[in-house]
Nucleic acid binder design. Structure first.
Lengths: 156, 156, 156, 156
DNA sequence: TTTT
DNA sequence: TTTT
């Protein structure tokens, strides 16, 4: 039963975040992330190989992504693999794999922090590490606890 | 261009390895790995959530997997996400995601190492860490050589 | 400012946990973990190389460790590197590095769960993943949030 | 015996690399890497906590570090923990922990690749991932060969 | 001693 | 579809 399911990615966004506001105050952001490897083939030519990843962020993380990330942004991501399975119109089993983001960090320093300081509350550094908080935000009354969403049972 | 694409899994095999011997001495093994998380839902009930991963191993690794792994084996895996994309019969874009294994380690000590000591050459411990070696070995001669199989340009 | 400091270990305990109960309900456990690599030297002889790690766990994690881990236990650990620096008697700068554990998972299934079922509440599997909760436990009123202690500002 | 000893760091260099050329064509580079976490304390004030890591790179990696890294460079690192233990003048046991780098990637795109294209041979991208190659190259001929430098038995 |  |  012991299980570890961990993904570490570092790459660039292929497009601006797609953010959806759902009922009940929930927010989800979908990102397309490219990770590119370079290697030399047997003839000594450099070859780039790009893998595209579908990332999913929920709650406060989604909002931070909406606010600060855009096409081209470089980020470091920790998450886990999550698959959806369903039957398509032809009755065939289908599977789609995405990365549920647990935390991410903006790199590259090309931040364009909004001009509204309110927006940046508690986030003076654009490259702070954003741990996921469940959404709706739990009323943690403890000191400064960082939450992550790795094990919650919210419906996402 | 900087890219990191890393997966760390720890779980159990849902079936024996499926191994195919290809032309040119190539071997590929496919594994189904389950990683299970346990958490309590809002009612305090324990819930298990299992994610199934398709693993792909090549060359010597595939042979080691064939030899030592079986349904139920517990392993620790490092690898990377690799997707195949194609068009199906209906002309729809399809995508299948799997984990290309870079290294793995057998856990649990329930090894049943073959009775033939030759088989265990260099592997007195069942839980040795098996780093991937490209197969057939690339004719690496320069200093730029990739020393694991993460970046090779072999056709897999 | 972007920072990642992550350690992943899988190994066995060299001794039973050392647990200290501090004032204010705090608990700390210290573990000695061995990670062993096997490789062949240039003569083809198998060589084992063991690295010893000093792990530190706080709060509920420390109690779980006290309860379920013992000399020889095999665990998977995620944590971060933390160093203490000080001056010794001779006025020399000294540094000691340890691993602050964020989460751990018991492996090997050799659990000897206590006979008191209360103790195992919510932990029917010995190999559940134990995320750290800050100590003293925050009064999280949210649903089932998993906390980790990676970013707290408690004095440890 | 199963062992995993893995470190993932992302941070900035506190100083230029220190490179030593040893007898027998060996090269070693030492780096000081800072990883900084930001969090809010219980009063809502942002606090930065910096951990300093001693990195050690060998062979070709050391040369690449010497050539392209400098004080302030942002890098992503994978490696493992390695400790030296010895007795000091007072006969006391001492231990020093460092990170043996397995691979690293330059981030931030502030590369100042030398103007000599020869220098960049096989490395048109400053942020290529540098996997360690043992130096001098081991005469790998069998299938059990370690394909990165994590498990070699070279004298470093 | 870094970085934002 | 990203990035250098």
């Amino acid at each position: 039963m012991a299980g570890v399911n961990k993904v570490i990615l570092l790459g660039n966004l292929g497009a601006d975040p797609e953010v959806k506001y759902l009922e009940g105050d929930n927010v989800v952001a979908n990102l397309r992330l490219a990770t590119t490897e370079s290697y030399k083939d047997r003839n000594g030519n450099r070859v780039d190989q790009t893998e595209w990843h579908d990332l999913e962020l929920w709650g406060p993380q989604a909002k931070i992504a909406e606010q600060y990330l855009k096409k081209g942004s470089q980020i470091y991501v920790e998450g886990k693999i999550k698959s959806d399975t369903w039957q398509d119109d032809q009755g065939q089993n289908r599977k789609r794999t995405k990365i549920r983001v647990i935390s991410f960090t903006m790199l590259g320093g090309k931040s364009e922090m909004g001009s509204n300081p309110q927006e940046n509350a508690g986030m003076s550094q654009p490259s702070t590490n954003y741990k996921a908080a469940a959404s709706p935000a739990p009323s943690t009354s403890g000191p400064d606890i960082q939450m992550d969403d790795s094990d919650d049972d919210l419906p996402f």
